[in-house]
Simulated assay, not measured.
Amino acid sequence: MSLSSHVQELKRKHKTLSDQVETAQRAPASDGLELVHLKKQKLKLKEEIERLSS
């Protein structure tokens, strides 16, 4: 897998997590711990994307 395709895959995963976070935030009975976990995963992906892109 080339670097650019790896970064694209990470961006796709980041977008998926963003959608999951938005859905969880709108749900009235969302699990706060799950939301924190999703946000941490999203941040790790963002940091990895930035590291690989620079």
Rank of each mutant, 00 (worst) to 15 (best):
K40E: 15
V7I: 15
R26Y: 13
E9P: 01
L35C: 06
S2N: 15
V21F: 03
E47A: 15
M1F: 10
V21T: 00
E48N: 05
L52H: 00
M1S: 14
V21P: 01
K11Y: 02
L17H: 02
V7Q: 02
L33D: 11
L43F: 10
D31P: 06
K39T: 02
K44Q: 10
E9K: 10
K15R: 12
A27F: 08
K13N: 04
R26L: 14
K42V: 01
V7A: 02
E22P: 00
A27Y: 07
H37A: 07
K40D: 14
K46H: 06
S53L: 05
T23L: 14
R12F: 11
T23A: 14
A29M: 09
E48C: 08
H37Q: 09
L3E: 14
K40I: 15
A29Q: 11
K42Q: 13
K42C: 02
L3N: 15
E48K: 08
K11D: 04
K15D: 07
L52Q: 01
L35S: 08
E22C: 08
T23N: 07
V21R: 00
D19T: 03
L17P: 00
D31G: 07
M1E: 13
K13V: 10
E34D: 03
G32P: 06
H6M: 14
S2G: 10
L35R: 14
L38F: 03
H14V: 07
A29E: 14
K13L: 12
K15M: 09
K15H: 08
S18T: 06
E34Y: 07
S54C: 07
K13E: 06
K11A: 02
S5L: 10
V7G: 03
I49Q: 02
H14R: 12
P28V: 14
V36G: 00
V7N: 02
K15A: 11
S53E: 15
Q41N: 03
K42H: 10
K13M: 10
M1Y: 11
K46G: 03
